[in-house]
């Protein structure tokens, strides 16, 4: 099937069209539900067409790394649970889950959206740890961009739990009104290459015939904060530069959707 689908898709792309009626650089419809998870400190449920992801944030107190004694930490993980796709199996995270978590982590971390220095409680001893957990509910391609939108939206929803300094205990059931110290909204745009053409936000069918992908994270209309290429094909530097311009433009449209 993949050859005929590929030929068909390429022919459509010649005319700037896609199977589902989108233009090459269009996202699918994006919807964001804020705070669907009551037990999380912050959460978001994101739909990108039929792709759906829940991201939850939990805060806890721990000890800092010795090389950064006064800063908080971010720990990101993703579980590709089998509810989301026939390709996912139960068990500990494998390659794909690890890549999804790390790409999302990098977009958040490198953007410096979280002011980690403000997450210090006692230098060298106690800091806030931010756990970011990604759970795809339905995988119809491009989990990366959905996960980053979910992560940023969830971070903006996050409030601290109470911390009892005397008892040195986090009271997870008692939430304060204090929000995380955040400064910007990184957005990821993932482009898939089919022959010599690129499309944004590929669905599972388009992904299955693609040669490779490039994810570009942006902070605003002029700053790139993360990049990652995946898959076996190759890309040229000119192509990347064009994609960066596209990522600035499309990223800004998505950024406006996050409250």
């Amino acid at each position: 099937m993949s050859n005929s689908l590929k030929d068909y898709t390429c022919k459509l792309l010649e005319k700037n069209m896609r199977e589902d009626g989108r233009k090459p650089m269009d996202f699918r419809e994006i919807s964001i539900e804020n705070n669907p998870i009551k037990n999380a400190n912050g959460s978001a449920r994101v739909k990108l067409g039929d792709t759906e992801v829940i991201v939850g944030i939990k805060l806890d107190v721990g000890s800092p790394y010795s090389d950064s004694p006064e800063s908080g930490v971010l720990i990101s993980s993703a579980e590709l649970t089998p509810i989301a796709s026939v390709d996912f199996e139960p068990g500990p995270p494998r390659e794909r889950a690890i890549e999804l978590a790390r790409v999302t982590d990098r977009a958040i971390r490198e953007s410096k959206v979280i002011d980690f220095n403000k997450l210090c409680i006692t230098p060298k001893e106690k800091i806030w740890m931010v756990f970011l957990d990604i759970y795809p509910i339905n995988d119809d391609g491009n989990l990366f961009d959905a996960a980053v939108i979910g992560a940023v939206a969830a971070l903006y929803n996050t409030v601290f739990p109470k911390y009892d300094e005397k008892e040195e205990k986090v009271l997870h059931k008692e939430l304060t009104k204090t929000k995380l110290p955040l400064s910007c909204k990184p957005i990821m745009c993932t482009f898939y290459k089919i022959e010599d053409k690129y499309i944004l936000d590929a669905n599972a069918r388009e992904k299955s015939i693609s040669d490779c992908r490039v994810s570009i994270g942006t902070l605003d209309k002029k700053t790139v904060c993360a990049m990652q290429k995946g898959g076996e094909g190759t890309v040229t530097s000119e192509e990347i530069l064009d994609l960066i311009s596209e990522a600035f433009k499309r990223g800004d449209e998505v950024r406006k959707l996050i409250k």
Binding site: I37, N39, A40, S43, I54, G56, I57, K58, D60, S77, E79, T81, P82, P90, G91, P92, P93, F131, D133, Y135, H172, K173
Partner: peptide
């Protein structure tokens, strides 16, 4: 059958995985 709890589903975060 497979039953799993998301890490953020409980008041104290639970470790992902079975």
């Amino acid at each position: 059958a497979y039953y799993d709890m998301a890490a953020f589903s409980t008041t104290d975060r639970c470790r992902p995985g079975p």
